[in-house]
Design a protein around this nucleic acid. Structure first.
Lengths: 217, 217
DNA sequence: GTCTATAATGAGATAGAC
DNA sequence: GTCTATCTCATTATAGAC
């Protein structure tokens, strides 16, 4: 959300290009959007586009840098030791919001990988951090008596929860033919992921689910 | 597995093309494999390739037809009313085998969709049938006292299990950087999906998990 | 059925004027 | 920074000889 102007940088067109690409990529995936289309969408000439980004790959990399910032912000939103169910609800909602804002990275992972192979190690590092963070949060929920689960069970929940959240958007496309993702579809995914935790919730923990269900975000 | 020669059909080259494409697509995705590469891989000329398939899209469609047969075979392997844990183990292993043999359809869903849009409704119909079948199987397991779960809980398990199974391969790529999928990775996925059921298993049901773990397939 | 051309396309990318 | 014009190139696809 913040402007995030990097030092000497000030060009407005560059930002408009990135904003347009994020929108277009989220709609149809980076592989299906041509540079001509991007330029037209921004209202500039294709040559001008190549002044700002010499390779299409660089656009993807620049967008990834933004995504990375958002990712780390979401991960950092957890307060260790928290025992208010609302805190956990907000934390998980943060992940689904991020997923919504950068859904092409989730839905078109294979295409992104082919297009910008240098991102692979960054993506992996990001997933490492994010998953470690979710693991800490689940242990925190166990400590706060919101869930009752062994370390092995928590490990299973981390991985399965990660997969459900990550691929929910593509699941909607392939299973329900939903191409235009709306906010309600993301909320639906959050509820589906919650299902994983149901058998492990303590009475206090059920409050997290109830709060999430009644949230209007 | 069966020859599946369709009536008047007998050309060997066509089959070699399809076999090569299945291998290449599984390795790197249909979008990243060119017709020149396919022809070279088969050991024929590119013009000859276009004699057999006028459009690349038709190759994908022909492969999908094979996949569809395999899919329905797997779905049909369930014996209603079975209460032998081994039957359920074999049934679920069948799904993961199919996933292994046709992994590009799972991993590159978006690319397949762009390349052969006519497949969309077929894919959806297939997923409808498959999921309905898995639902029946879970109800069967409940009836056989292998799991104890309400209809709502079964519904959650069907969807979450479907997602874990479907996207396991891409998860390995994005999370662990595994590009070359091997059989052991598929077994790992099956074990991960099993984690979903753990809280719902009856003592008898645990035998399914134990059997799956000790299976060498 | 298979080959040797070669056409047709369309995408990414560059040069240089303004 | 932005534009016009052009290039390169990979890829799909076709025509026609053998």
């Amino acid at each position: 959300m913040a402007a995030r102007a990097v030092a000497t940088e000030r060009p407005k067109t560059r930002m408009r290009i990135l904003a347009a690409c994020r929108r277009l990529f989220n709609e149809r995936g980076p592989a299906a959007v041509t540079t001509a289309e991007i330029a037209a969408s921004v209202g500039i000439n294709e040559g001008n586009l190549y002044y700002h980004f010499q390779r299409k790959e660089q656009i993807v990399e620049a967008l990834f840098a933004e995504f990375e910032h958002g990712f780390r912000d979401v991960a950092a939103a957890y307060s260790p030791g928290a025992d208010d169910p609302r805190h956990y609800r907000d934390y998980f909602a943060g992940w689904f919001n991020l997923m919504w804002e950068w859904r092409f990275f989730y839905r078109d992972g294979a295409a992104v990988d082919r297009m910008a192979p240098r991102l692979r190690r960054h993506l992996k590092a990001l997933a490492d951090d994010g998953q470690a963070q979710v693991r800490r949060v689940l242990h925190g929920m166990a400590a706060a008596a919101l869930i009752r689960a062994s370390p092995q069970e928590i490990e299973m929940l981390v991985v399965n929860g990660w997969i459900i959240a990550t691929y929910w958007i593509d699941y909607l496309r392939s299973r329900h033919g939903i191409a235009a993702i709306r906010r309600e579809h993301i909320d639906w995914g959050a509820a589906q992921a919650m299902g994983l935790f149901l058998p492990y919730l303590t009475p206090r923990g059920r409050a997290v689910v109830e709060l999430a269900r009644s949230a209007t975000a």
